[in-house]
């Protein structure tokens, strides 16, 4: 097993995913299996190689610096799970104490 239960719980917290105890169990086993398979890459000496992040030649694609209309507020808020009563703001649970 390349991963422990504690590590998996820690990763879940980094990813902000609520996982049940059962899910953490099965995830520990499944992720370990996948990572063990990924160890195949250690057969390769890649020290001298440059990493490939993108396969295309585009670099620093610029657009003209023009002011264009953005989405109307009503449209932008259409899919929001919660807004204030005037539908002007997205609403979330309080993040600051009173």
């Amino acid at each position: 097993m390349s991963l422990t239960r504690e590590q998996v719980a820690h990763i879940a917290e980094l990813a902000k995913l609520e996982l049940s105890g059962v899910a953490i169990e099965s995830m520990t086993r499944q992720l370990s299996e996948i990572l063990d398979y990924a160890a195949l890459l250690n057969q390769l000496d890649t020290d001298a190689l440059a990493p490939t992040a993108s396969v295309i030649p585009n670099q620093n694609v610029m657009r003209a610096d023009l002011v264009t209309p953005s989405l109307p507020r009503e449209t932008a808020l259409r899919n929001a799970p919660d807004t204030d009563s005037q539908r002007e703001f997205l609403r979330v649970r309080a993040i600051l104490d009173d």
Binding site: L3, Q7, V8, I11, A12, L14, A15, L17, L19, A23, M27, Q30, L31, I34, L35, A38, L41, N42, L44, T46, L49, A50, P51, T52, A53
Partner: peptide
């Protein structure tokens, strides 16, 4: 969720070089 977990791990401090960067270099090959 499995893939988010796997990806978060591969990018996390201490494992980035061993997994993510290693895979990017293999991609070159």
């Amino acid at each position: 969720k499995r893939r988010i977990m796997l990806g978060t791990y591969a990018l996390s401090a201490g494992y980035y070089d061993a997994y993510y960067l290693k895979a990017q270099k293999t991609r070159t090959l």
